Amino acid sequence: MTSARPADPRNTWAQLSQSERDAAYDNNSAVKNSPELIAERNASSARTRASLKSVLDLPYGDRPNNKIDLYPAAERDAPCLVFWHGGYWQKNSRELFAMLVEGIAAHGWSVAIPGYSLAPDVTLTTIVDESRAALDWLAAHGPEHGVAGPVVTSGWSAGGHLVAMTLDHPLVTAGLSISGVFDLGPIRDTGLNKALQLTDDEIAKLSPLRLPVIDKRLDLAYGANELPALVLDSTNLHAQRDAAGAPGRLLPLAGHDHFSILAELRKSDGALVKAALELVD
Rank of each mutant, 00 (worst) to 15 (best):
P228F: 13
E75G: 11
E278G: 15
R21N: 05
G103M: 00
A140G: 01
A195K: 14
T12F: 02
H141V: 01
D129F: 08
L230Q: 08
D269Y: 07
A30H: 15
A4K: 05
C80N: 02
E264S: 08
S177R: 13
G108W: 09
L218P: 06
A73Y: 09
H161K: 03
G185T: 13
G180V: 00
S44E: 15
L265V: 14
L52Y: 03
E130D: 09
K67A: 08
G223S: 14
L192M: 12
H169I: 08
G103A: 07
S268C: 06
R132H: 14
G61T: 04
S117A: 12
L251I: 15
L262Q: 12
G159E: 05
T125P: 05
Y222N: 08
D121V: 15
T48E: 12
G146T: 06
V231S: 10
S93K: 12
V273Y: 04
I261Y: 05
L279R: 04
V231P: 00
P212N: 12
K32E: 15
T2V: 11
D168R: 11
H238G: 03
Q18W: 02
L253V: 11
Y25S: 06
P72I: 01
I203Y: 04
P170M: 03
D8F: 05
G115D: 10
D22P: 11
N225S: 14
D136N: 15
E264T: 03
W89G: 03
S29Q: 11
A148R: 04
S131Y: 00
N11V: 09
P9G: 07
L209D: 01
G175E: 08
D129V: 01
L100Y: 05
R41Q: 09
L167D: 01
N66F: 08
Y116D: 04
T2Q: 13
D62T: 10
Q15E: 15
S34E: 01
A140W: 05
I203D: 01
L227Y: 07
L250H: 06
P64Q: 09
I203N: 01
S154Q: 14
H161T: 13
S234P: 02
L52G: 04
V273L: 03
A73W: 08
L138I: 02
L220R: 09
Q197G: 14
D57T: 06
R249L: 12
G245A: 11
A30D: 04
P114T: 05
A204V: 03
L100I: 08
G61E: 01
S110Q: 09
R21L: 03
E264Y: 12
Q197F: 05
A174I: 02
V82W: 06
G115T: 09
A73T: 07
A73R: 07
I187W: 01
E226V: 13
D129K: 13
G245K: 12
D168C: 11
A98C: 14
E75L: 09
N11P: 00
L220F: 08
H107R: 09
A239Y: 02
D8G: 03
D69E: 11
A73S: 13
W89E: 02
A43L: 09
T2M: 15
G185H: 07
I38M: 10
P208G: 07
A43T: 09
L198D: 05
V82M: 03
P150F: 00
S44H: 08
G146L: 04
P64V: 05
A229M: 11
P79E: 15
N27D: 11
G185S: 08
T166Q: 10
